[in-house]
Each structure stands twice: as structure tokens, then as C-alpha cells.
Design a protein around this nucleic acid. Sequence first.
DNA 1: CAGCGAGGTGAGTAAACGCTAACTTACTTC
DNA 2: GAAGTAAGTTAGCGTTTACTCACCTCGCTG
Lengths: 241, 241
Amino acid sequence: MSTALPRTKRMSGEKRKQAILQAAAPVIARAGFQGASVRDIAEAAGVSEALLYKHFPSKQALYDEALAGARESSQFTIARFATLEPGTESFVLLTYATVDFILFGFPGSKDPEQGIARLVFQSLLGDGSHARAIFADTAANWMDYVLASYQAAIDEGDIVELPIEPPHRFRFVQQLAMALRLSHLPEEPAFAYRGSKRKLADQAVLFSLRGVGLTDAAIKTHFQPRKLRAALARLFSEYTS
Amino acid sequence: MSTALPRTKRMSGEKRKQAILQAAAPVIARAGFQGASVRDIAEAAGVSEALLYKHFPSKQALYDEALAGARESSQFTIARFATLEPGTESFVLLTYATVDFILFGFPGSKDPEQGIARLVFQSLLGDGSHARAIFADTAANWMDYVLASYQAAIDEGDIVELPIEPPHRFRFVQQLAMALRLSHLPEEPAFAYRGSKRKLADQAVLFSLRGVGLTDAAIKTHFQPRKLRAALARLFSEYTS
DNA sequence: CAGCGAGGTGAGTAAACGCTAACTTACTTC
DNA sequence: GAAGTAAGTTAGCGTTTACTCACCTCGCTG
């Protein structure tokens, strides 16, 4: 079940703090802030409750730091896309990656059971501050690449004119993927459907590409799931070991 | 803030039970199962904890019943659409209504602060059983109408061929709307954007219509938000008093 | 009008909660 | 090797939690 760490030897302050945070995140992700007791977290981290309070003034502070830490873990991924030259092809790939990463996890993420997603949704049921921060982060990181390749796709004549603000287009893609992720959080998905989750994701990408304004001709040429997956695998080959 | 009912006079068993359930729902919706204490719920219902336990064997049972009750509240709405004759026009209206109702609440729903949405999302962070039940309910109610009008739209030549299973198409619309709703649960939305929420919803409908496969010509003819809102208002005029 | 059952409550229970004081242990420093 | 300190624990604080029990109070009906 949960990784209840055995009591380990002495550790320097900062190292211990990080170890606690890393152990706390999945516990909180699973049970929520209210559901995860300090005892649970301490046990998962393999330390006493008292030590935990040496590092964090309160449970709330621990929670905040754990979420802030989780936030940083999906930042570096996007840099990989900088190597692509903007165009319809890269735009489709970016769209595919958006859905893929949200639904199946970011490449190289050591997030064991994709607790970050749970934390985001829990935040949205609360004051939403952490979710807002994460959204802002990813927007800041992705938007440049996406808008660039989107503009390139327009220049190639592959985008239909629609009265949708460009940023909204990609937000809708992201939001759809998030909802699908949320619907798959329980062991049994929230809605029953035929076929694999992979196939569902592919169809969601297709839905998104058309929703975003791609012409049917461009979709026909560029939307080839197998090739797109291969391209992604190539881009992130170092993580797939 | 919360409606803390005053202790009322004697009441018959079943009536009291319903009153408790009705008072419990928003409290649980706001704070979650773990966050809402039995004391809180009892106070909100204007009764003692002991009486509460006369009606429900445990907190969990109360929770389950409260959610099961909330489930029934959005059933009748759809019957209104039976009066429309299938076609591209009614298909667009149904799509618009899906997004509108999820984002702004069902017409005639007395759900004060749209607690049902919160309950659904909370369920998804748990075992998802309640969310699954609600999804199954709405699917059973809506799918017939939607598929009928969708087929009519195909017959009118307004739908582009896409390798997306028809049920998925409408699920994606629903899922997108749900994600937007979730992102708007906190006071401040999870992502910042220009313009009103209404405008965002309209653009989401447009995105959805294209994603679902509607031809650009059909979109141009049928997607007129003002007219669609008027049509909805007409259909549900009895609730808008 | 006695009695009785259903509606309703105050005062608890044991366990779990967040948190802390007081202590021990291990490592560094000169 | 004594002193100093950071790392770590034990035991328990006061409170809240879900839940229970003994009791009260009506409105009814034989």
C-alpha cells in the first residue's frame, strides 16, 4: 500500500525536510488535507510527529509547502519542444502532447500515482490558489510555443477563422484533458465506454484539433496518432528508459 | 453565511429526515465529507446530533443518502427538449444547453450555490460511485435526444465524418463544460481571462460544435448565442419567474 | 386518564485530532 | 574529552470527533 518508510538514521535538517515533503505529498493527495492526519504523514515519512513540527510550524504550512514543491515538477518538460520549428505539424504534436501528458503523466515525472492531479483538483474544491499557480506556470511555459506554432499553422492556411480568442482555444484543450483525467481518478472511470483509454485520448485530441479550428484537410494529413506518439517518444527518449 | 436553521417544532419522522438531508447537502458540499462534522450538519438542520442518529445509522449513511437525493434534482429538465423536432437546429440548441446548464446551473434548480457540482467533484476524488451514478443518469436521459438530433443533423448534411464514436463526441462537450465549471468553483477562477464567463461559455460551445463535427457552414447558420439563449428561455420560461 | 410509542435532547463515551514540553542521542568543535 | 548543538523521540496536553444512552415530552388512543 502506502510507502511507510522505516525509521532511518540521522539526516541533515534540509534533507529530512525534503524527505518529509516527498513522503507527505502522496498521502495528502490520496486523502486530502482533512483526511490525511499528521500522524499518517509522520508515519509515511518514517519520523515522529514531533520532528515533523520541528520543520513545519503547522499542518497547513506543511500542506502548502508540499503543494508548492509538487508544482515545480512539470516545468522542464516543455523545453524539449523548443527544438521543433513552428508549423502545423508541431502544433498538432503540441496538442497531442497536452492531452497525452495530462491524461497519462508527464514524461520523466517520478510522481508515483500522479498525485499532482489529485492535489490540483483538491485545490479547486478549496480556495483554488494552488491550482491557479500551477495553471499560471504552465500557461507561462507553454503559451509561447503553442501560440507560435498556432500562428505558423495559420500562415500555412490550416486554420479556419473562428471567433474564439486564441488562448481560449488551448485552454479548452487543456480543460477537456483535465476533465478526462478527473473522470479517470477512481479505479472505475466515471463514465463507461468501449475501447481503451488510449483510444479515448486519441479521439479527444481529434475533437480538440477540430475545435481549435484546424481544417479537415490539415487534420487528415497531420493527425496520425501512431506517428505522433513515435515523435513524442523520440523527443523524450531519455526518460523512457 | 450558512443557513443555520432554528430548532423547529415537532415534525413527522420522514419530513424531518428530508429536512435534515436538505440542510446537510450544502454543508457537505462546501466542506467535504471529512470537513463537515456531524455537529455542523446537525446545527445547520436545527436538530441535535442524537436525533440525527435516530434517522441515520452513521455519518457515512447520511452522506450517501444526501448525495443520492441530490442526484434526482436534474432529471426532469430534459423532458422539455422532447417537444423539439430533431435537426441541426435542435442539435445546436442541445449542445448550447449542455454547456449552459453545467456552467450556470439547471433551470428551476433550487440548488442554492450549485452544491451538486461540488459533490460530484468530491465523489470523483473518492471512489467516484456517486459521480458515476449521476453520469449514468444524465447519459440515459440526454443521450436519446442528442443522438436523435445528431442523426438528423447528419441527414441534413451538416456533420463532417470523423473517426470519433458518437457518444464520445457529446461526452467531450460535457467534460469540457465540467472542467470549466470546476475551474470556476473558487471565487477567483483557476485561470485568468478577459471577458465575461458568459462569453467564455459561448466560445466553449463554438469549440464544442466544431469538435463534434459540425460543418463551418452549419455553424455559421445556427450558432447565434443570443437566439439560442432566447430559445432556451422560451423553453424554460416557467422557471425564470 | 393511564399508558405508550414516537419525536427529541443533554450529557456523556472512547478514540483521534493538532500540537508541545521535556527529554535523549549523535555529531561537531576546540 | 568536555561542551555545545542539532536531530530525534516519548509521553501527553487540550480539544474535537463520531457515536450512544438514559431520559424527557408531547399527542394520541383504549
